[in-house]
Design a protein around this nucleic acid. Structure first.
Lengths: 146, 146
DNA sequence: TATTAGATAATAACTATTGTCATTCATGAA
DNA sequence: TTCATGAATGACAATAGTTATTATCTAATA
């Protein structure tokens, strides 16, 4: 066991997670990687510190971090392809609990505006807003664990 | 062969797709299903008309429809889990061509606002904006097929 | 020391998706 | 209408991503 900064231990303690070496290496891998790494990316990075680490351990700990709120998912709907036949511009109401998706007509939102210029020649085609929250159904089903 | 409305044949012709029976049934399945159906949903629905239809055919035609713009994907990043360690509120610049994701600080956007009340007790947690477009790199790499 | 809860590694299992290929079909030309 | 030809289909193999299972290990506690 090496570094094990007190910060990480505190972070784990705060979230009721045991501060294991693997967990720390995985967490540091996430933090050190640019952009939004995939489990595979994280695995490759973590292997540099712990060559014997298992991909399943990476998955399991990512899930633990997500469940506890240390990390969040870039997109809630990555499990399966969903098609959208609605050609009218619209946004989505997404339930973070059951992952259901409802349409929200574009007219129901004030058009998004930027304060600054967008970076380096990015050419905007359209803007898609996900309103994340808890749908009425899920809300009525009692509160669950965080 | 049954219905085969001229509309669908015209639609296909306009998009350079052969107007096959399966294709029509798949398209109608998408249109008739509520929300944002998955390939499996569409498959189940289509089987009611063509019990022998293959799941691969459903996938291939969904892809064809997406490529030709008859349908669109609910989310561009559904392939694999991506984690986000950025706890500062932010949005995303998503390239529809290479699917790269860049962060956009929340402060760079005017906070989204609703014009109307949200439906039936939906409790908003956060709002995630995807700015879809073409990144500078892709833009410089010539125009591709639609 | 014995017990126990939680974590890991190996691997099996599962789900979503795509590729291969022989057969069949849609389309436009004759 | 017939025909040639490329596109589409269906069966199935293959792959990627992810989760489940389980035996083992470890650290903390009784």
């Amino acid at each position: 066991m090496k570094a094990a900064p007190a910060e990480f231990r505190a972070l784990c303690h705060r979230h009721r997670l045991a501060a294991t070496h693997q967990r720390q290496v995985i967490y540091e891998a996430v933090m050190s990687l640019p952009g939004h790494p995939s489990p595979e990316d994280i695995y490759e990075k973590a292997r540099k510190s712990i060559p014997s680490i298992s991909l399943a351990t990476v998955y399991k700990n990512i899930r633990a971090f997500l469940d506890k709120g240390l990390l969040q998912e870039v997109s809630l709907h990555h499990g399966s392809l969903r098609v959208d036949a609605n050609h009218d511009p619209h946004h989505h109401l997404v339930c973070t609990r059951c992952r259901s998706i409802m349409d929200l007509d574009e007219a129901e939102m004030v058009p998004p505006r930027f304060r600054q210029k967008l970076p380096r020649g990015f050419k905007v085609l359209r803007i898609s807003v996900d309103v994340l929250g808890i749908c009425a159904e899920c809300a009525s089903k009692k509160a669950r664990r965080a």
